[in-house]
Design a binder for these strands. Structure first.
Length: 779
DNA sequence: GTGGAGTATCTTTTT
DNA sequence: GATACTCCAC
């Protein structure tokens, strides 16, 4: 690894590169005047206010190319920060394409986190970290916090560790080390928050580990306390570029200000109207006060939109107008008028999914809209991930190919994390958290008691858990079957560790040996659950993913930072994702379902953050609408299942903010004998009433008439589970149904418990509430 | 020590 | 409706 001094040595070379003088700049001809400004104003602070679809990435990448081309900086003197790995990847590709060569030479183009890891590997010792520190994910973090909470004798029912994790995260986002937490926050987590935060940081240091927030926080601390280090990097990074500046939190902001403090060659790109990460500590204020922070800053506005039709832009503008304190932009386009936005209401969530499925089919077949569309030109953007389920269910039944973006991630799956814990232990045996995860996975007969013995032995001797386990076995502190299994595990770990140094063995082979010899593979082979084969499949995939890396360590590093899994499995598919995940993307056709008050805008957001929360929700609506290029379809449902309970709601207040002239209101389906059989007569009537309302010109007054459809009756009462009072009347011999055990006969009643002889599951004692009379079975 | 049944909580959004 | 957690019976 090259040391920092070696890096400095390049500086001389860069001067000669600059001396080479300007080269032709054909790429500038591709830009509109505003974009050109944004590219050519190289020195001094620049704020690029780039509305949705205004060619922001183009301007940013061209700026990098221009910096290189004019000799202002060498590739490794440019610090370019993004928020997502995807954005970093894309930028690298585009720069490479423009330069006509792979942009391998841009080591400082990456996410905040990836760049901080690089820096921290070099300078970690300044905050008492060894350079091979591990990065904890949220799971490890939570387990660690739980231990601390329990040790502090706090009732983790009333004060969940999750909550503490959130509070600590928040402090870290605000660049607050435990000693800097303001007095106003002293009451946090039952007045124990600050103390536990300090303990947590101590524990992390003992484990030679950091969490995500630490990556930024430690670097800020180092820059603040080591002037020499800061100055070196201020010299080194001649030009700084920041993407999605509106999403920076305080720690990131301080980090940037420190680095840009000397030369102030910083170009921040953002859109205050697309700030949607306030809940994660992002401060819109950062972008709003850029000109104050950097006096004399050039502000460039990109307002010509190359993405959407005028109808779509008009709708988006009208919605976002409701927010206060914006920097203000007016998007315009030369695009043809196109279709109006479409708005439709449905009876319930399932019907919404059904309708959208049919619509997608029709659009694909060319029977709807001005041109046939490919499946990958369409996307469904939801507010909360639980909304995805209805679409997945529906699309599975009609065989419509879809892809969920940002769903449960590969590296978060249980089996993958288990396997990775084994790998972590092979690479670094002192990784106590990894050891705790796998001591008893697969089952080795090592329960709480044995694990406590290991912990105590380790602590008494001041060694890692693995070493503690070895000692405990040696001293015979753990007897019987567990002891033998533990000895085997400890010896295995030592053996695999030695094998890691073996040149004749690839790390893929090693990984396979580890999983086989530890019994982990067998554990899933013996498991009879329906998921087991899939999990084995995932493990195989994990081994395959190792191929791209030098060794296990390199792989683990990669995974801790890049938790996304791009599945580019072939074939056109409809995309389903959250609005947050959709930022930066665009699709010819966009569906925005679930526009109901409470769901969107989210009740929780409004409860917790009031007006600020509502405004962030509104920005989310803005982001959603502006993803659409040609067609945007907004929908809402009167009824939806929440927590398995039916709930009804009113259309979103944002629907009122859509400009009437740019919206076409569609008649709900079902009235023409289309879909949705099986409703009661009452349901049809209600739906007919809805149709009239929708068709009326004054549809905006819908809200005033919410009583008519907002408070619609639940579908059918016979679908509800039998209630407790009714259950009391079970009689001996009665035929009953249980969700899990199936059919059976009542053979005894004791209070609220009923003894049932099930046909398949045999004799069980169950609580009456979970039983239905068999002719009353829900279906 | 394990596994099953019963109970509580959950749903925003993620590097 | 699903999962994580707790409690109780083997």
């Amino acid at each position: 690894m090259s040391s920092f001094d070696e890096m400095d040595a390049f500086e001389g070379a860069s001067l000669s590169a600059r001396a080479m003088g300007a080269r032709p700049t054909p790429y500038l001809d591709d830009l509109n005047p505003a974009q050109r400004d944004a590219v050519e104003l190289l020195d001094g602070p620049v704020l690029m206010l780039a509305g949705a679809g205004t060619g922001k990435t183009k301007a940013l990448t061209t700026r990098i190319v221009h910096l290189l081309n004019t000799g202002a900086a060498r590739p490794n003197e440019i610090l370019a920060v993004t928020f997502t790995n995807k954005a970093a990847r894309e930028m690298k590709q585009r720069v490479g394409r423009m330069l006509g060569q792979p942009a391998e030479g841009m080591p400082w183009l990456g996410t905040f986190h990836a760049i901080c890891v690089k820096l921290l590997r070099r300078h970690g010792e300044l905050v008492n970290l060894k350079s091979n520190f591990t990065i904890l994910d949220t799971d490890d973090q939570l387990r660690l916090l739980k231990q601390l909470v329990r040790a502090a004798n706090i009732d983790d029912k009333r004060w969940p560790a999750r909550m503490l994790a959130g509070i600590i995260d928040d402090w870290k986002n605000r660049a607050l080390t435990p000693d800097k937490v303001p007095a106003a926050d002293a009451g946090a987590y039952n007045h124990k928050g600050v103390e536990l935060y300090a303990q947590y940081q101590t524990r992390l240091r003992e484990l030679n580990a950091v969490d995500f927030g630490d990556l930024l926080l430690h670097m800020v601390t180092i820059f603040q306390t080591h002037e020499d280090v800061l100055q070196q990097y201020q010299r080194w990074f001649r030009y700084i570029l920041v993407d999605e500046y509106q999403d920076t939190n305080v720690a990131q902001y301080m980090w940037l200000r420190l680095l840009a403090g000397a030369h102030k060659n910083i170009c921040c790109v953002g859109d205050d109207d697309q700030s949607i990460y306030g809940w994660r500590g992002a401060e819109v204020g950062n972008i709003l006060r850029f000109e104050k922070d950097f006096p004399g800053a050039h502000v460039v506005r990109l307002e010509q939109n190359y993405r959407s039709t005028p109808h779509i832009l008009a709708a988006a503008s009208n919605v976002i107008r409701g927010n206060q304190g914006r920097l203000g932009k007016e998007l315009w386009t030369e695009a043809a008028e196109g279709e109006k936005l479409r708005l439709i209401g449905h009876w319930d969530g399932e019907e919404e999914a059904r309708w959208i499925g049919e619509e997608i089919d029709a659009m694909q077949g060319g029977t709807r809209g001005v041109r046939p569309m490919n499946l990958d030109e369409m996307a469904i953007l939801v507010r909360a991930s639980h909304q995805m389920r209805a679409f997945e269910d529906r699309f599975l039944t009609i065989g419509l190919p879809y892809r969920v973006i940002g769903g449960p991630r590969f590296y978060e799956r249980m089996e993958i994390r288990d396997a990775m814990a084994y790998f972590r232990l092979v690479v670094s045996p002192e990784d106590d958290l990894a050891f705790e995860r796998i001591v008893n996975t697969p089952k080795r007969g090592l329960g709480d008691k044995a694990q406590q013995t290991i912990q105590m032995t380790a602590r008494a001797n001041g060694v890692s858990l693995v070493e503690g386990a070895r000692l405990a076995v040696e001293q015979g502190a753990i007897k019987g079957k567990g002891g033998g299994a533990l000895r085997e595990l400890v010896e295995g770990l030592a053996r695999w560790g030695r094998m890691a140094g073996d040149k004749d063995l690839t790390h893929m082979e090693l990984a396979e040996i580890v999983l086989d010899e530890s019994g982990y593979t067998a554990h899933w082979q013996n498991e009879k659950t329906p998921e087991a084969p899939g999990r084995l499949e995932n493990l195989k995939e994990l081994i395959k993913a190792l191929e791209g890396f030098e060794n296990l360590q390199g792989f683990l590093e990669h995974v801790s930072l890049i938790m996304d899994n791009e599945q580019n499995d072939g074939g056109a598919k409809v995309s389903i994702m959250t609005l947050h995940a959709a930022k930066g993307l665009e699709f010819p056709a966009v569906f925005l379902p679930g526009w109901e008050d409470g769901l969107f805008p989210s009740q929780r957001s409004m409860d917790e953050s009031g007006i600020k929360g509502l405004e962030e929700e509104r920005r989310l609506a803005y982001v959603g609408i502006t993803r659409a290029e040609e067609v945007c379809t907004i929908s809402f449902a009167a009824n939806r299942r929440v927590f398995g309970q039916w709930q009804n709601s009113m259309p979103s207040r944002f629907i009122d903010e859509l400009p009437e002239d740019h919206v076409e209101v569609l008649t709900p389906p079902g009235l023409y004998g289309g879909s949705g059989g099986g409703f009661s007569a009452q349901g049809i009537e209600t739906r007919a009433a809805e149709a009239n309302v929708y068709n009326s010109p004054g549809w905006k007054r819908l809200q005033a008439r919410q009583g008519q459809y907002g408070m619609a009756q639940p579908k059918e009462s016979r679908n509800t589970v039998i209630d407790m009072d009714a259950v009391a009347s079970f009689t001996l011999g009665e035929r009953v149904f249980h969700q899990k055990f199936g059919y059976g006969a009542v053979i005894g009643i004791e209070g609220d418990k009923v003894e049932v002889e099930f046909e398949k599951a045999g004799l069980k004692k169950v609580v009456a509430r979970f039983l239905n009379a068999s002719d009353d079975v829900p279906f």
